[in-house]
Design a protein around this nucleic acid. Sequence first.
DNA 1: GCGACAG
DNA 2: ATCTTGTCGC
Length: 235
Amino acid sequence: MSWFSPLDLASWPTTVESAMALQDELRPLVTPVTPPGTRFRTMAGLDSAYDDTGAVATAVVVLAAGTLRPVASAVAHGVADFPYVPGLLAFREIPATLAALEKLVSAPDLLVCDGQGIAHPRRFGLACHLGLLTGVPTIGVAKTVWGDYAEPGPQRGAATDITIGGAVVGRALRTRTGVKPVFVSVGHRIDLDTACAQVLALTPRYRLPETTRHADHLCRAALRTATGNYSGSTP
DNA sequence: GCGACAG
DNA sequence: ATCTTGTCGC
């Protein structure tokens, strides 16, 4: 038995209107607070890769908090039916992402998403949606920002608020000295300070979290082998 | 009307 | 996201 409820594809939005409506409906359920006693012993990175035919490969790689070494991973293949629409990335990536997560025998303690949490036009980015669907703490770590922010100091660890319409929705966090910051925002069941601390723990070497890097490499490799199997083998 | 717009 | 060469730096 899985550690979370499977996605109900029958009621999954297929139009921009219904997708936005669902975000507005679910937004109130987000809990930007870390439950007492929460321990992050394992953290998982998630990422998807696409090809020109619409094929998608999503990977999840679970790392041990102490060593930052992979302890589990899974891949799921599918077809991207929802187009990429700014603000609606979740509807394009969640189906395959949940399929990959379902293959894990146990729940990670934290899901590190490639995208936004509440630093989103409707305060409900991919990380929020995935958090609600899995019940697991989630954070969004984006490479580009959605909102306003002042450039943080040059040192690793320096951070400034990200605001949208005056409200603080996340933090521009410098993970490597002298390198462009990453944009962290809460997804669900975690607070911003804890989220940033986790991101720093996951970036001892590179700008992006080790979780994201592992997942990125795995989903790209998976997509390549899938494409290769489809067009160029055993005739 | 014009520009901006996670991946 | 993806398409792509060289190049600067540790």
